[in-house]
Write a protein that binds this DNA or RNA. Sequence first.
DNA 1: GATACCATACCGACCAGTCGGTATCTAGCT
DNA 2: AGCTAGATACCGACTGGTCGGTATGGTATC
Lengths: 200, 200
Amino acid sequence: MSTQERSEATRQAILKAARAVFLEQGYQAASVAEICARADVSKGAFYHHFETKQGLFLTLMEDWLAGIDRQLQALRAEAPDMASALLHIADLAGEIFDTANEQVPMFLEFWSEARHDRAVWQALVEPYRRYEAMFTEWMKEGMAQGAMRKTEPRDAARTLVALSVGLLLQGLLDPEPSRRVETPRHALHLLMDGLREAPR
Amino acid sequence: MSTQERSEATRQAILKAARAVFLEQGYQAASVAEICARADVSKGAFYHHFETKQGLFLTLMEDWLAGIDRQLQALRAEAPDMASALLHIADLAGEIFDTANEQVPMFLEFWSEARHDRAVWQALVEPYRRYEAMFTEWMKEGMAQGAMRKTEPRDAARTLVALSVGLLLQGLLDPEPSRRVETPRHALHLLMDGLREAPR
DNA sequence: GATACCATACCGACCAGTCGGTATCTAGCT
DNA sequence: AGCTAGATACCGACTGGTCGGTATGGTATC
């Protein structure tokens, strides 16, 4: 293995260990020493690869957000037709949410740290605004294509996001996986019914 | 002021200061010394009134949960008729959520700490289950009274809770208060439309 | 004089980050 | 090919400081 490859491997080992320790103990409680021990790496190596503990945390967050970006882009590419997409999204919701659930604890960790750390806050809010804008566009398309009734697209998008976030967090409280699949499916159906056509 | 009163005042001062410091810095980062300084009280006083830092945190959480309990009981007492309650809840949602928003940061603090602390976790999950059961009952009543269409009441309740939690967290990201009022109103309307009668 | 209430000094553990040093590799020169 | 200067990757002891919690003592109230 070349030096470069070894270096990259060390870096990845640190990132992996850090993710685990942050999840177990939380960002604040996690110690650099333990991350190093878990990665089987010295403190020198740690500070060679990362500026500070916060810097490492931000790197982790950027990687995570990049993953979300990719998933969303893929989702959009797969279903260019909003009408059919919205019809099926509720049926898929169960699965989607069950897989996403692994990442939720880290998401919570990012969020709660963001509340007390300017840099983390910035790095989290900016993508959130992007996602909100993106979903709003989707909603507009859905309305234009007649797949859903006309309402404030931005509020509709925010509602979808809020419900998703709520469902994911709810999943954390639930030990039984069946509810983590069924409730989102049901929930998205309910919301989509409300979004489809005015009843009454 | 009697000794008892003074003692109680000290206790309350500590609780108040602790709330502020926990909100500003988070549970882990908050130091007992700073809480004492903020409450203008010595460390001796602190450890006279509370077992540990965690004990204080749990007390804070119990008080907070007791407040929720009271609010929910009041809500239920005010609207014994589920049919009309569900019809109006969406219109009221904006206000409700705007007032509730002050408490959300503390809620997040409880939740994220619960992920890493057994005792906190237990103290948080148990009431959550109670609330879920309570909402489920409300949904059942709503269905029995013909105010909403028949679906899984438990999933419907969980959906309502999830959406609420999501909206509250979303409010944290939003600096402009108008969205904090409008989005919940809109969101609850959408969900209630889905809950009312099957469209298609 | 017993007890509840509070103050202060202090302890051992721990923590993020530093720093002097080593080992390995690469580039350029001869 | 052999040699060397410098860069890169890494090591681990150490520092200055903070933390939660305790031990001990004082004082006002019952």
